[in-house]
Design a protein around this nucleic acid. Structure first.
Lengths: 311, 311
DNA sequence: CCTGCTCATAAGCCCAGCTTATGCAACGCG
DNA sequence: CGCGTTGCATAAGCTGGGCTTATGAGCAGG
């Protein structure tokens, strides 16, 4: 029990401060660059720093992780096996950071940008950043601005000419807008893997779901509307929380079954932090739509973004 | 020197240095803490720093992003709308960092750890970090060590008593091991969204796939073995690359169709950076299995980990 | 054997982020 | 109505991580 560093006794499910154990983004980018070009010096040049800086940075990263990451040779540097693994994990962080950056950049350029997008929360949270990364890859100098709100707000912006393209997830398309379905979303019932439902063999019946207190978004949210409609207005809240992520956290923590968009829990399901409970004969599907003012077909960058969103 | 930091006209698809536009992990963690507890000061205490440090850090993050993130009031701080969105994007980064940390920690503790895991590359890359995060949430003081290699290496370690639990993805279970299927993986054919196949209506026939030069892993990799077996040893390589991520990058870049594990491309599909091409009558499914020496059923932490991996 | 590539080390600079110490604003309570 | 509590902002000073430039050492190839 040689616990090395454990003065962090915080809430369950949280170790100690992450930032001290994970290299910063610059270091991770550097590692990816080294993996790509096969040399510290060239990777350094690529990032606009000097070779000693790169050398030292990689070295200190290795010290921090306690693992050799690159094999230095006089003819270049290659990743070790552990380094290849670490690089792949690092890539996930960098990709998440790219999505963050794309979203943040759109959020910043408030008024004057060329492509103004209005989107509902779920879409803005989970899908848009990825689309923006892709859009930036295609058209690097398109500046995008983003406004997030509910369906009504999206419709208002579009009709007022303050947005060029909208995305909504509701059951109906707001009046005055044309739309195209770009994806299908489904609400799913999830629990922590420890919950009894996780060991069920037979799908859940609608009545069981309606009879069980659930971890839910607050009334008025798109998710809640769909669920209430599907169950006939009967969903019983165990707790009501004001954000998707709060609901997820509660479910992961074992508070109880939650109902959430498939989009929101993809990762948790993949990592088995949540388990999906099959449900019988409840219509929890909903369309995700791109919308624009009737008649004004999207053109230019809006058209590009729209075509990115279709599979 | 007038040039501040912009002699970087790099390869397409890459902006400039990310690290300067995205707040560092510490700042993101702080933001999440503020969102959770509703006060700068309490969030600061939670992370073991002082209130002025937190105040300044949040402020500089707001300056960096050009968006107000929190509403300060004399009675606490709440996220703005933009702040809520940014926080959700930030959470993705932090979660990726947690997975990185869990993996790295396992990689570091080479010999002496209590639970020694040996896993094939794909599993080690995409699934294990998530499991380790979950395991750490359940049993915070279990130290895990990780060794990644191909099926043969995994089997050797287990039989030599140098590993307590293994994970393999091949077609067959190595001799001397018992196994349990923990998940199903499928190889999928993917292309960039711009590729002609992305606009096909009808599924691809096996012969078409076999006749088309593909972006592939090198011969000998598990992925390649499964593909060759499914096609009858006929896969034609356009390029052979030595890592899953290199293959992904090539496919995203439009080099040509690639064949990859579903696990590896989930994110790219979600973000529409890759498009999945349906294929007809080719058996690309494979089992992911946990393995252990015949007779030695996993016990203790190994058992915990094993049960985490089953849905 | 020299030239060119690689990486490592050394010495010095600079700024980001931390701390402590303080001030100001709002709320609640005796 | 003053007083204590809670919460945020500002100021001044320290420290360290990461950068730079300068230099050296190992290995390949003409």
């Amino acid at each position: 029990m040689s616990r090395t560093e454990d003065h962090g006794g915080e809430r369950p499910g949280n170790g100690g401060s992450l930032a001290h154990r994970v290299p910063d983004l610059g270091a991770l980018e550097l590692l990816l660059a080294v993996a790509r070009v096969g040399s510290l010096g060239r990777a350094a040049r690529e990032l606009g720093i000097t070779q000693p800086a790169a050398s030292s940075r990689i070295r200190s990263m290795e010290r921090q992780l306690g693992v050799a990451l690159v094999d230095r040779s006089p003819r270049g540097s290659r990743l070790t096996d552990a380094g290849a693994l670490v690089t792949d994990w690092a890539r996930r962080i960098v990709e998440a950071a790219e999505a963050f950056d794309a979203g943040a950049q759109a959020l910043r350029d408030r008024r004057d940008s060329r492509l103004r997008v209005a989107a509902s929360m779920t879409i803005a949270e989970y899908l848009l950043p990825g689309w923006l990364v892709a859009l930036r890859a295609q058209r690097p100098d398109t500046a995008v601005s983003l406004l997030a709100g509910n369906s009504t707000a999206v419709a208002e912006r579009l009709l007022a000419g303050e947005a060029d393209l909208g995305f909504v997830e509701g059951l109906t398309v707001p009046a005055g807008l044309d739309s195209a379905v770009i994806a299908h979303d489904r609400l799913v019932v999830v629990t922590a893997p420890t919950h009894p439902w996780a060991r069920r063999r037979r799908p859940l019946a609608a009545e069981e779901l309606a009879a069980t207190p659930l971890v839910l978004r607050e009334e008025g949210s798109g998710t809640r509307q769909v669920l209430d409609a599907a169950l006939g207005g009967l969903a019983r809240p165990l707790i009501e929380l004001s954000s998707t992520t709060a609901v997820k956290a509660a479910a992961v923590g074992g508070a109880g079954p939650a109902v959430l968009s498939e989009l929101a829990v993809g990762e948790e399901l993949g990592m088995r932090r949540l388990v999906r409970i099959p449900v019988q004969s409840v219509a929890l599907a909903r369309d995700l739509r791109a919308v624009w003012p009737t008649g004004h077909r999207p053109t230019g960058p809006a058209r590009d973004l729209l075509s990115l969103t279709r599979s």
